[in-house]
Simulated assay, not measured.
Amino acid sequence: MPELNLVERYQAHRARRFLANSEKWRHMLPGWRTRHRRRILVIALAATFAFMLTVGVLCHFFERGPLLWLPACLLFFPIWTSLQIVSGRLGDAPSGTLDEWEVQQQNAARSTGLSITQSLVMIPVIYLIVGSVATEGSHTTMAYTGGLLTLTTLMIGGCSPAMILAWSRPDPDPESDEFPMEAA
């Protein structure tokens, strides 16, 4: 048997770790694994991102605007974690753990996520370039505003594949292991 190179060993380790974590988390939140409930989480996450973008814009005008970032994070983390659990982390699953159809879906969602990232990140980049030229670098909150907007747009792009897959995948088969029965 030929020896595996560094990348192949890493991919094998990643697949083993993914499968172990999937086994650990697969019985959590069984009532939220339906398409309808996953879509609720996707909409909640989108609303959280809208709130984060609003906080970023408010930071341009108000010095205390960054204080709103904490509630935005307090909303983001539980929603994102729940979405990852109920969607089986298919957005970032190693390809060795997926079947051909799932790999195709994942690749399409990742491609869309990359396009979203590239498009959205241009907004804060243009804001920073034009704003720093227009104000000659004298606006005190411009860097923080640009940083929050860039971080938010990167998060949107990074979360997009999981959001797309959670939104579009059908309900799991009630007879499969993917849809565990609730305890009686």
Score class of each variant (00 low, 15 high):
A109M: 04
T117S: 12
A44R: 10
A134D: 08
H139D: 06
L75S: 10
F77I: 04
H60D: 05
C59M: 11
L120V: 02
A12D: 15
D173V: 09
L75C: 11
V121A: 04
N5D: 15
F18R: 12
P71A: 05
W80L: 12
S160A: 15
V86D: 04
V55L: 09
H60S: 08
Q11G: 00
E175G: 14
Q106G: 04
K24H: 13
D99G: 07
C159Y: 13
F179W: 15
I123K: 01
A15K: 12
S22D: 07
V57A: 09
G113S: 15
W101L: 12
T112Y: 08
L98G: 11
V7S: 15
S160N: 03
P66I: 02
R38K: 01
G147A: 09
P71I: 06
L83A: 05
L68E: 08
V125F: 05
M155P: 00
A183M: 10
G113D: 15
W69S: 11
A93V: 11
M155Q: 06
C59H: 06
L6P: 00
L70W: 10
N5L: 04
D173L: 04
F76N: 09
S87M: 01
F49I: 02
G158P: 09
A134M: 08
I164C: 07
V55F: 03
P71Q: 08
T141Y: 06
W32D: 12
C73I: 14
Y144M: 11
S176L: 03
P30H: 00
E100T: 01
C73P: 06
T97N: 08
A109T: 10
F62D: 01
L6R: 12
M1R: 13
I85S: 07
E3W: 04
P170C: 02
S87K: 03
I164G: 08
Y127P: 01
H13L: 12
A12T: 13
E63L: 15
D92W: 15
D177Q: 11
Q106T: 10
L90I: 05
H27I: 00
R35K: 10
S119D: 12
A15V: 15
W80A: 14
R17L: 07
K24P: 00
A15N: 11
S111I: 03
L114N: 13
I79P: 02
S95N: 10
S22N: 12
S132Y: 04
R169V: 10
F179V: 01
V125E: 04
R35E: 06
L90F: 04
T140V: 08
Q118N: 12
A93F: 05
G113E: 13
V125M: 08
R35Y: 03
R37Y: 05
G88I: 15
M181P: 05
D171M: 11
M163N: 06
T48L: 03
E178Y: 14
R35C: 05
Q104K: 07
P180A: 09
G65D: 05
I43K: 11
I126V: 13
W25K: 10
I43S: 13
I79C: 03
N5F: 04
Y144N: 03
Q11V: 04
F77D: 09
F76T: 00
L114C: 01
F77M: 10
M155I: 11
R35A: 13
L128E: 07
A143G: 06
L98R: 04
P180K: 04
G91S: 13
W25F: 14
F76M: 10
T97V: 14
M142E: 09
D173P: 04
P170A: 05
L120T: 00
V121P: 01
